[in-house]
Write a protein that binds this DNA or RNA. Sequence first.
DNA 1: CACATAATTAACCCAGCGGTACATTTTTAT
DNA 2: ATAAAAATGTACCGCTGGGTTAATTATGTG
Lengths: 227, 227
Amino acid sequence: MDGAAERPKKTRKTSWKKDPKAVREDILTIATEEFAAHGLSGANINEIARKTSTSKRMIYYYFEDKEGLYCAVLERIYASLRRSEELLDVAGLSPVQALRCLVEATFEAHANAPHFIRLVMIENIHNGEYLQKSEFIPKLNRSIIDKLEDVCARGKAEGVFRDGADALELHWLISSFSFYNVSNRPTFSASFGEAIFSEQRQADLKERATDMVLAAVVIGHDPKSWN
Amino acid sequence: MDGAAERPKKTRKTSWKKDPKAVREDILTIATEEFAAHGLSGANINEIARKTSTSKRMIYYYFEDKEGLYCAVLERIYASLRRSEELLDVAGLSPVQALRCLVEATFEAHANAPHFIRLVMIENIHNGEYLQKSEFIPKLNRSIIDKLEDVCARGKAEGVFRDGADALELHWLISSFSFYNVSNRPTFSASFGEAIFSEQRQADLKERATDMVLAAVVIGHDPKSWN
DNA sequence: CACATAATTAACCCAGCGGTACATTTTTAT
DNA sequence: ATAAAAATGTACCGCTGGGTTAATTATGTG
């Protein structure tokens, strides 16, 4: 009706700071929570923006689009977990003790990184297509394999590990129960109760699983002889 | 302009069959694929309807809303997998052979049920909230635990299994690598290559993992004595 | 200080998608 | 037969949410 009233008064904030690095980090931190909580399609850009100390526009400014933001989140959390793996030093331990240490550390690291677990689950739902695009992710993962290979080699040299002991297979195995223990807790609890997720039972499980990994590589018994 | 033309000719199909059961099943089959492929929020009702031989209206008629459809899909696939577990009969085997058989069957069942795996992953992303609502799911899961308990009891009675052998822990362990092997294949491949997913390596892995489970329960070696 | 450029804000757009209204047709019960 | 109930089709709606436009302010550089 009133033509003059159409143009609203542009009463903007007249002053604000600039801090690109902090803004980027802020967005990534919030986005990590939201993607971990709701998945790629489930997460809401408006909601992420709202929880941020900045605006939606900045998300698109820095990350292009929703997928770009998701990729950045994924790479960041992968890098942070792998970096913590690199800190492990088992060079001074005997092969058996070194392996024991690696298994326990992996189990605990997974238990303490729920966001990482959830994001990896989500990425698997998407068939790993975003991880595949990433160039530097494969390089990151060498560290843990290198450590396991070293331990295997030493164990074989000392005559305590069987010849077939393989670093990649060990990693597959160790990761599997460490990951599953966190990732599938909801459905496992729903089916079988929460008992095994008590602190005590988790410690038991960790020990049992560790023993088992050792049993898989240490010479001294022959599963084929059992019946 | 033309008032008379507003009302379109209702040239409907003048005859069609009714088959409620088939329509319901058709919807569930398509919905299973779509939810497994795209997740709860990622799946699209219009798309599901399009792939169905019926209309969107029928989805809401039978399943109330998107969540209702998702729950129905989840219960259906859970039931089908558990039903196949019940067919396993290891009562005639020795405890060691029975356990071996159960582990291998579980590993293979998971490898051959990608939709189930993906839906469970998705349900875990949603913290198992829909599974918790279900009344008959917990009952379904008794079967496999019962079998493991029976095997454990027999193994202990015969003096071949250690005293601490626990059915639930065993199930946790067996499920973990069986599930992870399928669920995390995309990210694992992206990080470490596809090598271990070849047919041959999978068979090796299955055997190795089975040996390990046995090592965890069979008396005859002592992990604590290793160093 | 001037000016280009980087960073930021506010307001808006619009397609896609979950969900519904209502008419219509088949089946079933009496 | 006939009416009630179950099953189905068509068209539509409103809002959510990813993405954009354009203006504005801070910052670095010669």
